[in-house]
Nucleic acid binder design. Structure first.
Lengths: 244, 244
DNA sequence: CGAAAACTTGATTAGCATCAAACCAGGTGG
DNA sequence: CCACCTGGTTTGATGCTAATCAAGTTTTCG
């Protein structure tokens, strides 16, 4: 018989403590669960770590789980029938990806880490079970679908149309949502930026370089920068006036 | 007292017959309901007719209903912060629009008829009531959210990137989904096409004209055409080879 | 029939892609 | 520790694609 002290469902189990103390807990899908409920299921939630470039799942895989991102930024990427890859969305802290698995569908995109990522794997069976007693869970799921849809629409209107400069500026604005609390901003590679905006690496590089010169963007290290929000807003305004 | 024969919930009521005999019934959100259930609620479903250009709802309105499209094509349109309008999705027969109202949210886009449209108005309260006894309804809703998301991602990868010719060709392919069963295809105005593809009216016009000359597109009347699917496939192939 | 809207076509230009080369940082192995 | 390699970045020169500007035409509708 398994000794009591290593019972994985027990709340004094170390992993249970991790779940209970999780920083994103209240904002994640399982945020509606109370301590007791979480303690009863935490052992079915695998903790996953990814290095930049590693995949969480691939498009067309028959998925059996969704994932809550606890840390880092993940990109959702599709290849077009012309053969080039396009990033259709980013996902960061507290966001849920791979929801299509909850419907028994295959994943719609590749999910690849842009930065070091930590995620929790939520098996479909678990979500189904919990949803039976906790209808709020389904409601939360639906809200997340709607958010993803809003996000996709925003990418269409703001990041895939207008001049290259406008798109890069809008992307910086979007990236502030994924920045560190201290104002440090994660900067994707130029290739990633291009794949998000439908631009080439060269064009993206030129525009980012220009923004550095204009002091909209203060480079910290290769992958991080600080943005002058006032200057960014002014640049966006100027660019939209130029277009109209 | 209301005479029995005009009782709106009675199955022999004319409107009830309309609902029971509805052509899209089995493919629509309320497809899971049986005759008795439908007869009990049909009087709460308003039948709506729109002429081209009329609006079903506006972005940012606090919506209290979703809509099932029974006939015609509707466009979902957003204006960007630069001030130009972009069509982010189309919706046709059997599709559900305005789902965000089911979450108590405001509509995310303007919904405007492209062709004469007939739609059924499904009040949020009704959907909530039915969902309590019929959990499949929520499942269907979630599937529709996922479909909308897939569609949005496809618009990003196939209709918003690549050469103008590629986009127009892909749009024709997409439009076959909204065509009549006899192979007749609804053609949007050049302005609408441009707003879907992120191109100007002039460019769109030139490319559509070229496709007519190449006999990929056989014009029937101003708003309809027939496409040679083989020629379309060949043109797409050629265009994607040229890019790669 | 006349006005407005949509469409088409042409001429010109701006903006981004393409091609090419140099540069830089981080990591590896001698 | 340095030489080297690799992947990402920057910059320049050139060309092509689609935007823009400008008529002119066709269709739609009151």
């Amino acid at each position: 018989m398994i000794p009591l002290r290593t019972d994985p469902t027990a709340p004094w189990n170390p992993q249970a403590q991790v779940c209970l103390a999780c920083g994103v807990r209240r904002f994640a899908l399982f945020g509606v669960l109370d301590d007791a409920e979480l303690a009863a299921i935490h052992h079915r939630i695998a903790d996953i770590a990814l290095e930049p470039g590693q995949r969480l799942y691939d498009a067309n895989d028959r998925g059996t789980a969704a994932y809550t991102i606890r840390e880092g930024v993940l990109r959702l990427e599709r290849s077009s029938e012309r053969g080039d890859r396009r990033i259709v969305r980013l996902a960061g802290r507290t966001q849920l990806v791979g929801m299509e698995a909850m419907l028994g569908q295959t994943y719609a995109a590749d999910a690849i880490a842009c930065t070091p990522v930590r995620a929790c794997r939520l098996p479909r069976a678990l979500v189904d079970e919990l949803a039976e007693h906790r209808p709020e869970l389904l409601r939360d799921l639906m809200k997340r679908w709607q958010s993803a849809l809003d996000e996709a629409d925003e990418w269409l209107t703001e990041l895939s149309a207008g001049s290259a400069r406008w798109r890069v500026l809008r992307l910086l604005l979007k990236l502030t949502e994924y920045g560190e609390p201290d104002g440090r901003l994660w900067l994707p590679t130029r290739g990633e930026m291009g794949a998000m905006l439908g631009l080439t690496v060269e064009t993206t590089s030129r525009l980012v370089a220009a923004l550095k010169r204009e002091a909209v963007l203060e480079p910290l290290d290769a992958r991080h920068a600080r943005v002058d929000m006032t200057a960014l807003a002014a640049a966006l305004k100027a660019e939209s006036d130029a277009a109209g």
